[in-house]
Design a binder for these strands. Sequence first.
DNA 1: AATAAATTTGCAATATTGTTGCAAGTATTT
DNA 2: AAATACTTGCAACAATATTGCAAATTTATT
Lengths: 135, 135
Amino acid sequence: MIQDILKRNQLSVTEGRKKILELFLNSQGALAHADIEKKTGENFDRVTVYRTLQTFVEKGIIHLIPTTDNSILYALCKDNCEAGHHHDNHVHFVCNNCNNTICLEEVTVPQVKLPAGFEPRHAEMVVNGICGDCK
Amino acid sequence: MIQDILKRNQLSVTEGRKKILELFLNSQGALAHADIEKKTGENFDRVTVYRTLQTFVEKGIIHLIPTTDNSILYALCKDNCEAGHHHDNHVHFVCNNCNNTICLEEVTVPQVKLPAGFEPRHAEMVVNGICGDCK
DNA sequence: AATAAATTTGCAATATTGTTGCAAGTATTT
DNA sequence: AAATACTTGCAACAATATTGCAAATTTATT
């Protein structure tokens, strides 16, 4: 399963990539670089984590989630993402209590009408509040 | 004018704060920490910039804009923001050409229907594409 | 207007985060 | 099983962010 995802994306199957991909598959929400470093423990070099995440983003295995706190969040893309062409147009939810970030795959980012002259390409939406588990 | 804003927010009026606030008033869009450091030249210490921005955010003079590139953008809040309670619910536009970020004060972030259990508090929306000046 | 009190600044030190080149190691191909 | 291609870790470095504290500036008080 994990191997398949890597192979499908023309990536060689290495311990590091398997481990990090597994982390994403086993976690509900999004992960930051720091999370991944913590959870992989002493197993990998920091540099490897950076490079692996970068590779995964390029291949469309994971996508970026914008934040206001000087970090980048990464979350797994669903099956219909292809390299270079993400279909991650869903809303992200950040819980103010547990601090988890969750992809709301079912909720599509709505279109907005922009003032004259602006030509939109892509839109991101992040909602925060309290998630179901924390109520 | 600049002094008024500071006083209204119970901040002492210092050179640094005046200068940085002026920068925001004179710029259309959003500014990153690095922009501010560049534009204030040699006048202030990096630490002062950090602390000033933090203070402005706390007082509601400026607000944060989420990004996916590990930086934080700051933009001026319009008059109806109060400390601790922002009314900055407008869409932000990032131009892929000139890289400017603009507050679309007229465009309100639309409400979305969340899955059961999720309780929204605040929503951010960032649209990117090409701005009027770049077309 | 001068002084006292409160706040802010800059410096220095430190911590954290991100990047690059290159040799050694591992995975894939033949 | 060997050759090739790719990935990793190390080391060095660069950039970014944080903290304590003394000096300087601003505000409040008399």
